[in-house]
């Protein structure tokens, strides 16, 4: 195992990651006000909605990339970033939902309920969001301690949530599936790695985690 960076370096890296993760949100805020050359184009609500959703998916994939990266590189301290990435995924996915509910649907409950029931891609999306809520709520150290051994099984909900999220994106686009396909391939690699690891290398080390 390679050496872990000093606590000071880790703190610095974490702060840096935090700022980087805020960049997409900052750009969207600048674009909303038409500042510094950023713009939301002719359909600003759609632009905000799609961007927030895509960043939610990207952060979900980044969160899921931590474990395979640790295994492959041996850089175990990468685990220190996972919670922040996961919470940013939740932040962008929730923002995506809030833009939909507040701006796009203007809180018309009838229309929102109809969408969730009748449009399969929205059903998938809302299900993924609901799965992420308990994960965000139980992400604190105190909750981890309280849940003990039940914490990890609960947090495996991120796997179906990510699957449904990519599926939601896939069903939303018309014909040009390149972008959701890229996400699906990355997700397949990240989940496939876990299965492969369990089968081959995992057995002996499984209890060391």
């Amino acid at each position: 195992m390679r050496s872990t960076p000093s606590p000071g370096t880790l703190r610095l890296l974490k702060a840096l990651l935090f700022l980087i993760a805020l960049l997409p949100a900052s750009a969207l805020i600048l674009a909303t006000f038409g500042v510094a050359g950023f713009s939301l184009g002719a359909n600003p609500i759609e632009e905000l909605l799609h961007n927030a959703g895509k960043w939610g998916l990207r952060f979900l994939l980044l969160t899921l990339a931590i474990t395979p990266l640790r295994r492959v590189t041996g850089l175990n301290w990468l685990i220190r970033f996972r919670r922040m990435l996961g919470l940013f995924a939740f932040f962008y996915v929730s923002t995506h939902f809030l833009i939909y509910a507040l701006l796009d649907q203007r809180l018309e409950m009838g229309a929102i309920v109809e969408d969730i029931i009748e449009r399969p891609y929205i059903t998938l999306g809302i299900t993924a969001l609901i799965m992420l809520i308990p994960l965000a709520l139980t992400s604190t150290n105190a909750m981890m301690r309280r849940l003990g051994r039940r914490w990890q099984p609960l947090h495996r909900l991120i796997y179906p949530a990510a699957l449904l999220g990519v599926w939601h994106f896939w069903w939303q686009v018309k014909e040009d599936i390149r972008e959701p396909l890229v996400y699906a391939i990355i997700l397949a690699i990240l989940l496939g790695f876990r299965i492969w690891w369990r089968r081959n290398r995992g057995q002996s080390r499984a209890h060391k985690e």
Partner: peptide
Amino acid sequence: DHPRWSQARERRIGTGL
């Protein structure tokens, strides 16, 4: 309705957030 979205209402481009 279109299978993936309602056709009852529409977003008029240019009307803002």
